[in-house]
Write a protein that binds this DNA or RNA. Structure first.
Lengths: 223, 223
DNA sequence: CGCTTATTTGATCTTGATCAATGGTAGTGG
DNA sequence: CCACTACCATTGATCAAGATCAAATAAGCG
């Protein structure tokens, strides 16, 4: 679904492949190493906040995050998942404030680059704009998908579709790990957590999935 | 909210201001005039269809359109409104099929340009990429707003927020024309048309708006 | 005027929200 | 090892917001 991550980010102009020995695996507290901007964050860490002045662009090397918005009364609505190879916070490139909060779901490795550096790179290598626009189209498509789900699918359909998306890179029938708990699934699909739980139970009863804690398996039964 | 339309589209590299005497106001059937790509379409006309190979980018000169997706069982979900100065179908620039159907709501004047020409223009004037990305960010923000609305606002809030958006460029208290009928409002906000009608009635009762047919007026009453 | 389409309104039903309690599991420290 | 805590998941009972189905007006428009 998503192109493989290039060894060097086309858009950011910085190394983005996580395995190289020269790359620093800095953790939350030790940002700003001059030779590499790769950083790691634990799960449930906000990387930037909605409404804040946008200064950096984030490229995901590994792990899974979400874009989420919060209402004054404390309810949250997740807008899309951001996965390896994708960008977030590109509002920074056009001088807008961040539109939504970016928050890690799993442990993540990301590349955080100041907007002026990204722009300088784009100036030097105009081909990079194309990759940026490809990413923007992908993001747009993902958010449209979110609209479709919460707009006209039933709770059961939404949850099953989400599981299919989350498991799209593992072979059908193989167990995999959900990066979200029930509450976060609810915030993404606009369902109460109790409804999520009940609905998952119904999917299990109907033989469409199997669940063990946060591990899950999609079965082949067509209905 | 949206930048004024430049006399010549930064992104498309073609004249985009509608009033010039040299511009042709072609109508649906007479596309393809070589000296100008400006065209007019009546209301409720699809300009491109979701899933089709994307060949052209559309810039809106005047009028209002919507991006909409349809399910196999015939229900529709609108994803965002597209207004003057905005683009649609930029998937064409990265070789993806159209992600959603673009359909006029009012009579519209648009600039329809083949993707290769847009790309050629972007090659010549790399600054245009920045304008394209600004547009993409705006589109993303609009779709996120749609998610927020249908995700966690009540029917009343959704409808009132939509009316505020539609009336954002007329002074508060002035009458203006809704470009959508009740069914289309429902498709945008994920509500049944009967609910839309009832809810509008409730807003009128509460003194928040006045309605005469498809003309509407937002009152200042705070609640 | 008569036709079509849009809107309003009513009656009833469903889905999922909400509130609240219970059970599980992992981690921590004595 | 166990008690204690914190978080997560499940389950039950009840309720309300909208959906759905159906019919009656109203509004355009040839």
């Amino acid at each position: 679904m998503v192109d493989a991550i290039p060894p060097r980010s086309e858009v950011l102009g910085c190394p983005v492949r996580g395995r190289g020995t020269t790359l620093r695996s800095a953790c939350a507290t030790c940002a700003g190493h001059p030779t590499s901007r790769q950083e790691c964050f634990g799960p449930r860490t906000p990387l930037f906040l909605e409404g804040a002045a946008a200064s950096h662009v984030v490229a995901v090397v590994s792990g899974c995050l979400r874009e989420v918005r919060t209402t004054p009364d404390g309810r949250a609505q997740a807008v899309r998942l951001v996965k390896a190879g994708e960008l977030a916070g590109t509002e920074a490139l056009v001088g807008r404030p961040y539109d939504s909060t970016l928050e890690s779901l799993t442990r993540v490795r990301v590349c955080v680059v100041p907007a002026p550096e990204v722009l300088a790179h784009l100036d030097r290598y105009p081909e990079a704009w194309r990759a940026l626009h490809r990413d923007a189209c992908g993001a747009l498509q993902a958010v449209r998908e979110t609209v479709l789900r919460i707009g006209l699918q039933s709770a059961e359909d939404r949850i099953f579709a989400l599981f299919e998306e989350l498991g799209s890179d593992v072979p059908r029938g193989r167990w995999f790990q959900l990066p979200l708990n029930r509450i976060e699934i609810g915030e993404l699909l606009s369902l109460a957590h109790a409804t999520v739980s009940r609905t998952i139970g119904r999917l299990v009863e109907r033989g469409l999935i199997q669940v063990r804690g946060r591990k899950i398996r999609l079965l082949d039964r067509r209905d």
